[in-house]
Design a protein around this nucleic acid. Structure first.
Length: 276
DNA sequence: ATGGTAGTCCAACTA
């Protein structure tokens, strides 16, 4: 079973690039981020005509996640528990960033968690260096805590699951062409990386690093300053696998060539193949 | 320090 994640940066602008890649890559499941569309405006028929079931969790203009699957999407849930009602998440995930569903393959089921973790910039700190409550950076760090809580719940079930998407997080210096340029950025600051490390330390596996130790392996290149041509990128789109899912992993790849096509997203797809 | 690009949807925000 081939499961892919792709931050498409706007479905309206990406219908062509997305359908081209789907035809070429033929994933069984595609986890999408930044659809930037309300549910009723998502062009679901285009993907249904390609044989995909479609579940969206959208909002107007910003964020928004979706699942496309050739197999039925069961027990779909939208939003991540634990919102605080701090005005930014409205107490119930005002920002559409999370969706879950179960897919059943020939050899068993897997719970698929699709996420678009907050960017977190600008980093807003008080005089003691603590993130300002209610700031974007604070929201990012708290969102990590909520995701970690959900991972703990799922790990207790001891079943295959994965959490995939745009984590807006550079795990290590080798995951950026120019790590020094990111040292004070919410994508690389120590508080953010500590949260990511705490999540993986529960016992989740970074699928790419189970299969690939090649240098300069990135999933995002800024549109500006010819970043892709210089391979001035970062690795921020990740598949984290539960132990039971990691046991099924047969491959993990990044489709970097997609970034060189017409009207590309600034992210490229990353996918895993599981023996399911 | 600014502006460089892109998407959404026409003002400004997000990345």
């Amino acid at each position: 079973m081939k499961i892919a994640s792709f931050n498409i940066n706007g479905i309206k602008a990406r219908v062509g690039a997305l359908t081209d890649w789907l035809k070429e890559a033929e994933p069984d499941v595609a986890i999408l981020q930044e659809i930037k569309s309300m549910d009723e405006n998502f062009p679901r028929e285009i993907f249904e005509d390609m044989g995909y079931n479609v579940e969206t969790h959208g909002q107007k203009s910003f964020n928004g996640v979706a699942l496309l699957s050739k197999l039925p999407l069961e027990d779909v849930t939208r939003g991540l528990a634990g919102a605080e009602g701090n005005g930014r998440d409205g107490g119930d995930d005002e920002e559409a960033r999370y969706i879950e569903a179960t897919v059943v393959g020939d050899k068993g089921a897997i719970r698929i968690c699709g996420l678009y973790l907050p960017n977190g910039n600008p980093v807003d700190l008080d005089s003691t260096g603590q993130p300002v409550p209610g700031s974007k950076y604070d929201y990012k760090l708290k969102w990590f805590d909520r995701l970690t809580a959900r991972a703990q719940e799922l790990l207790a079930e001891e079943q295959p699951f994965l959490m995939a998407g745009d984590y807006n997080l550079i795990p290590q210096p080798e995951d950026a062409k120019r790590p020094e340029a990111w040292k004070d950025d919410a994508l690389f600051r120590l508080e953010s990386r500590t949260k990511f490390r705490r999540l993986t330390a529960l016992g989740l596996y970074d699928a790419l690093r189970l299969r690939n130790s090649a240098p300069e392996t990135f999933t995002f290149w800024d549109y500006q300053a010819g970043a892709f041509q210089k391979n001035d990128g970062i690795r921020i789109d990740h598949f984290l696998l539960s132990p039971q899912a990691a046991d099924l992993l047969t491959d993990c790849q990044i489709d970097a060539h997609v970034r060189a096509k017409d009207k590309p997203s600034d992210h490229v797809p990353i996918w895993v193949d599981l023996d399911l």
